[in-house]
Design a protein around this nucleic acid. Structure first.
Length: 505
RNA sequence: GCUGCUAUAGUGUAGGGGCCAAUCAUGUCGGCCUUUCACGCCGACGACUGGGGUUCGAAUCCCCAUAGCAGCACCA
């Protein structure tokens, strides 16, 4: 029986796991989507105002999950219909982030390419009496709306509206002077659903991709696109519930069938600004070094710390599509990431705030062979050659009469004032255990390189300076585990040493 | 103010009338393993917002209250 299990493990690890009921037990199924058996068409529709962050990841991964599950198309729709909220660099950044996340995108659509389509549908909506052109002041209209009263423009004839629409497109009006409104119900109990805007004029800034002044508002362009692109299911945040209801008016006017909607709850992340504008402000003020500052919740920031896209994906699927407001927990993401990282990360020593201490009475030299990974001896070892003096953290010595220098030997600890004094105390690991000596990491004084470890703890990034093994320089771009410290991604290794970003314990 | 969504352990989730003195993950604590305070293994801890109602029976259905969140933009 065990033999069978062992054979299966070598032949088909995944099947073996299923047999033992290990692993794979998670990744629970999310609820089924209604009428999705024939496949789905879904979309991820970010606004190109900055790079993607964890909030985006939820929408992106949830939609991706269902497209993978049912098959179909997954559209990346760039919603760039507000020139004020377009960052030209974001087009590229969003693309990179989508790639990093590993989304199964099948089509890319830019709304800025589709203005004529929106104009044409705007014209048609006026033609069927579903919209009117309004030249009222926004504040004035708002007051009327809250009082359930119609504005003077609501009574325009179709001809008057069409005429105003062409003049609006022709540039006869300035920003704020005119808007197209969808005619809904002024008596509607929810003020949010009364005669909302569909088009407006934006004269500055100029759009990076197109020359235009009349732009559709989100509810109009989204409704038109969702229909024209054949979207079958929409998963988005519950802040869009009112928008879904608004968009229903447009679908109904045109006689279109609405997609199925799912609205998940609001997600907050403790001690983190997740809004693009908030982050941009912090960067502008110099509080953050850039979009990839490791204290930020952008995907590029967490990637820089060595958090894998797959961990983000798992964490998002664990959260699911519930409508409850939740606070995202770093702990849960870290746990997922550790599952991925721990088996592959090589182990190294990092000594924070190192002090050089000669070890009295020690034989010289002593070669320590430390496994690159304790659970995978095949990966080999690192050689640390002791030649009389070690670098250790004074902190590790405090309160102990003896320590075990990992993979080396025991040393008794004494103090000369505030200076530690180490004396060779034999090789016996058993002795160390008997003396309850902690096993601490160390480095040969002559073969250690400087290392700066950046911690993401907000609000201020903390920097831990220390030394690490020379071998770490060969791990640039990968994640290692600094023993007794935690996992970190090696950012760079140069003449002035190694720079690493801390991921988690 | 008006409208809507939600409410299970520290966090995230499962459960949608009896199988629930409530699932799983994470976390914390204890133990085992271990030349890392990692991984792995074992065990423990810890929750149905409150009040009414329906019912033989409610975490599950209804109502009210409370709380959180969202919308009421010529943003998405």
């Amino acid at each position: 029986m065990d033999e069978r299990q062992a054979r299966l493990e070598t032949l088909a690890p995944h099947l073996a796991e299923e047999l033992t009921g290990k692993k794979e037990k998670r990744q629970r199924e999310l609820p089924a989507l209604e009428s999705a058996e024939e496949g789905v068409v879904m979309r991820f529709a970010p606004n190109p105002s900055g790079p993607l962050h964890l909030g985006h990841a939820r929408a992106a991964v949830l939609n991706d999950y269902y497209v993978r599950r049912y098959g179909g198309r997954y559209l990346l729709r760039i919603e760039d219909t507000d020139p004020r909220r377009v960052d030209p660099d974001a087009y590229q950044m969003v693309q990179e982030d989508v790639e990093w996340l590993g989304l199964g995108i099948t089509d890319i659509i830019y709304q800025s390419d589709r203005l004529e389509i929106y104009y044409e549908h705007g014209r048609r909506l006026i033609g069927i009496g579903g919209a009117y052109i309004c030249t009222c002041d926004a504040g004035y209209f708002r007051d009327l709306k809250l009082a359930r009263k119609s504005c003077p423009c609501r009574g325009n004839t179709v001809e008057e509206n069409l005429d105003l629409w062409e003049r609006m497109l022709g540039g006869e009006f300035s920003e704020g002077a005119i808007t197209m409104r969808v005619k809904t119900e002024l008596e509607h109990p929810d003020p949010a659903l009364r005669d909302f805007s569909a088009f407006r004029i934006v004269s500055s800034p100029i759009h990076p991709r197109i020359d235009a002044a009349v732009y559709p508002l989100m509810n109009f362009s989204v409704a038109v696109d969702d229909h024209l692109l054949g979207i079958t299911h929409v998963i988005r945040g519950k802040d869009h519930i009112a928008n879904t209801r608004r968009q229903k008016y447009i679908f109904d006017y045109f006689g279109w069938k609405m997609p199925a909607y799912l609205h998940y709850g609001r997600m907050s992340i403790s001690g983190l600004v997740l809004s693009t504008s908030g982050m941009r402000e912090g960067i502008g003020e110099g509080r953050f070094s850039g979009w990839d500052d490791i204290r930020l919740g952008t995907l590029r920031a967490i990637a820089r710390r060595g958090i894998r896209a797959e961990a983000v994906r798992m964490a998002v699927l664990d959260i699911g599509i519930g409508a409850t407001d939740i606070s995202f927990s770093w702990e849960n993401l870290y746990a997922r990431n550790k599952e991925i990282i721990d088996p592959v990360a090589n182990r190294y020593s990092f000594v924070p705030d190192p002090v050089a201490v000669a070890v009295g009475d020690a034989p010289v030299p002593v070669v320590a062979e430390a496994a690159l990974h304790p659970n995978d001896p095949a990966r080999g070892t690192r050689r640390l050659v002791f030649e009389g003096t070690v670098l250790v953290s004074g902190h590790d010595l405090e309160g102990h009469g003896m320590v075990r220098l990992k993979d080396l030997f025991n040393a008794s600890v004494a103090w000369d004032g505030s200076d530690p004094v180490l004396t060779y105390a034999g090789e016996s690991l058993a002795d160390a255990r008997k003396a309850k000596a902690p096993i601490i990491q160390w480095l040969p004084a002559g073969a250690a390189i400087p290392c700066i470890l950046h911690m993401p703890e907000s609000p201020e990034a903390m920097i831990v300076t220390g030394c690490c093994e020379p071998g770490v320089a060969g791990e640039v771009g990968t994640v290692v585990q600094f023993e007794r410290i935690g996992f970190a991604r090696i950012e760079s290794a140069g003449a002035d040493g190694v720079v690493a970003y801390f991921a988690h314990r």
